[in-house]
Design a binder for these strands. Structure first.
Length: 611
DNA sequence: TTAGGGTTAG
């Protein structure tokens, strides 16, 4: 044994001899005893040193890992990642996986991918966990092609996809609204049999259906899960309850809530937050208060999300003072309002046209460090655009790039709309072209905004050119877009073309809605075709499309402008009977008629009522 | 150490 050890040690010695820095002993040439003694002394020191190094490395990794839960930003995560990458030997793969998870949770998907690439360069071979994380990142970046490339690598490395892999891919397709492909993978999963769906699979599918606004199908899936004796968990219930509440189907949501409780599933703060939002959206403040009290009685306490829902809905109902009260209450409760809370309050001020107060909230957010995000900018820019303060909006729009924030389609659409509202269609078109040159694809709303702007600014030929482009790109041209175009044609005096387009809608499989009728009625009145406008009013009702206050105001104005006062009076009577009233411009025309004594005195009480 | 649920903008 000793000989064996000596042989091994001699081999070790010859290997180590090249490195004087590692404390290799100097051997006495004539003394085997000295050699052996020295060598054993070296051996034990070397082993001790190795053990010490290993311990130090483990301590370093453990120390780094201990800080993982404290990491809340990507910079700190990457610092740890880089330090780990410098250690030799490298820390185990799962430690790197932990960091990748942290970065993925911060939604920094591209960073996860580049970090993985660094790991690969360092020679690390991924396992199924790492590959799943990578697939998930590509899914969230809407790069399903790359997700499938990673899946290919997974197979190539001899792994089998886990249920997490399949769930991630299903979610990826759903994030891209590709429900058919998501269902396809789900069906393959069931057929193949080697990977059975779990609660997360169903949860993912339920979410996908809710995202498509298909609450009915989501509930059907829930029932199928029951039939298969599959345990339905809180997340599935919360997903559907939230979706129902967002669609203001509070009664259905409360029924599902009762069902959930009767099955022994306890609600959490998310369940109550969803229900409170549903109640607030319907203006049922008493119900919202009841729910708040109920949750607190169950020791479920409202959090930042809950209060933010209150702030947002109060603001949208014009109750900004009450929303301010909620924010103050949060601060009193030592609950720090977040970017969404402040942005919602800012939106409230914008909706009231109180831009100075909105800007103050924005500045407060800026003073709190990196609190503003793309949403905050969008809200403020939109506020300025609606007030026709385009220069302030433009400054903020330009500021976004400096802040490193992405000017996404929504922001571009807002600023384009703002430019159009003040007649600066060239600036709107510039944004439209810049979007495309930077590789950002305009969506159907971008086209709609520009089309509307061009139409309202009497640039019909450019509008028509854009419309052809939309057709060429096979965009989903819906009735709203046709209404814009019909309105554009009418404004440009091309009533016959507008009428042809209107009449041809059914052949395109489209049903004119109340807006389409209103713009056509307006066009007919502008063209002096008031009888035809009145016929269209009757026809729309016959076809089940109820006229609204805009319809009546439009046609009454049209009749007065065409000196058809008595017919206008008949429609004023009809409008009042239906519970609608005159708007400012109609009122102005009626007052003019009154001044000229052109109104039958018998109609005066009625007119007063309509005003 | 991986996968599903809540709050803000067009």
């Amino acid at each position: 044994m000793l000989k064996m050890m000596m042989r091994t040690n001699a081999a070790a010695s010859s290997y180590c001899s090249s490195s004087s820095s590692r404390g290799m002993p100097r051997l006495h040439p004539n003394s085997t005893v000295v050699f052996v003694n020295n060598y054993f002394a070296f051996f034990s020191r070397s082993q001790a040193s190795k053990a010490k190094n290993s311990r130090r490395r483990r301590t370093q990794i453990d120390q780094l890992a201990k800080d993982f839960p404290k990491i809340t930003n990507v910079e700190d995560a990457l610092k740890v990642f880089d330090r780990m990458l410098q250690l030799r030997p490298l820390p185990p793969l799962f430690r790197f996986t932990q960091v990748l998870c942290l970065v993925a949770r911060l939604k920094q998907y591209s960073t996860v991918i580049s970090s993985y690439n660094q790991m690969a360069v360092s020679g690390m071979v991924p396992d199924v966990y790492v590959l799943n994380i990578l697939i998930n990142c590509f899914c969230h970046l809407n790069q399903m092609g790359s997700s499938f490339s990673v899946l290919g690598k997974l197979f190539k490395l001899g792994f089998e996809p886990s249920v997490s892999t399949v769930n991630t891919l299903i979610n990826g397709f759903l994030l891209e609204n590709r429900v058919v492909e998501a269902a396809g993978i789900f069906n393959k999963m069931i057929k193949a049999g080697n990977c059975q769906p779990n609660a997360i699979t169903f949860g993912t599918l339920v979410k996908g259906l809710c995202m498509k606004g298909n609450n009915g199908a989501a509930i059907q899936l829930l029932r199928k899960m029951e039939e298969r004796a599959f345990k339905i968990d809180l997340i599935v219930y919360n997903t559907i309850i939230d979706s129902l509440c967002k669609d203001t189907l509070l009664v259905d949501a409360l029924n599902l809530f009762s069902e959930m409780i009767s099955r022994g599933i306890a609600p959490d703060v998310r369940t109550y937050t969803a229900l409170i939002q549903g109640a607030c959206k319907l203006g049922k403040w008493k119900e919202a208060t009841r729910l708040l009290k109920e949750m607190e009685s169950k020791n479920i306490f409202p959090n930042v999300h809950t209060f933010t829902v209150l702030v947002d809905t109060l603001c949208k109902e014009g109750m900004v003072v009450e929303a301010e009260g909620v924010v103050e209450m949060m601060i009193q409760r030592d609950m720090e309002p977040n970017v969404v809370t402040y942005s919602s309050l800012m939106n409230g001020y914008c909706l009231q046209g109180e831009m100075d107060k909105a800007k103050k909230v924005f500045e407060l957010m800026l003073s709190k460090g990196s609190m503003v995000n793309g949403f905050s900018y969008a809200i403020l820019i939109n506020g300025y655009c609606n007030q026709k303060k385009i220069d302030e909006a433009r400054m903020l729009f330009l500021d976004m790039s400096r802040m490193g924030l992405v000017q996404d389609n929504i922001i571009c659409n807002i600023i384009m709309d703002g430019f159009c509202k003040v007649g600066r269609t060239q600036d709107a078109q510039k944004v439209f072209f810049e979007m495309q040159t930077s590789g950002q694809l305009p969506d159907v709303i971008t086209y709609t905004v520009l089309l509307d702007g061009l139409c309202k600014n009497r640039q019909l030929s450019k509008a028509m050119q854009l419309f052809r482009e939309m057709e060429g790109k096979k965009l989903d041209i819906d009735i709203k877009i046709y209404s814009i175009l019909i309105n554009g044609l009418c404004i440009a005096g091309k009533i016959k073309s507008a009428r042809d387009l209107f009449c041809g809608l059914s052949s395109k499989g489209l049903q004119p809605d109340v807006v389409t009728h209103n713009v056509m009625i307006n066009g007919l009145c502008l063209g002096g075709l008031t009888s035809e406008a009145e016929e269209l009013l009757i026809e729309m009702e016959e076809k089940g499309c109820s006229p609204n206050d805009r319809t009546y105001n439009t046609i009454i104005r049209g009749l007065i402008n065409n000196n058809e006062t008595s017919r206008a009076m008949v429609l004023i009577r009809q409008m009042v009977e239906k519970g609608f009233s005159a708007d400012v411009s109609t009122m102005e025309l009626i007052v003019n008629l009154l001044c000229k004594d052109e109104v039958d005195p018998a109609l005066l009480p009625l007119i007063r009522k309509s005003l």
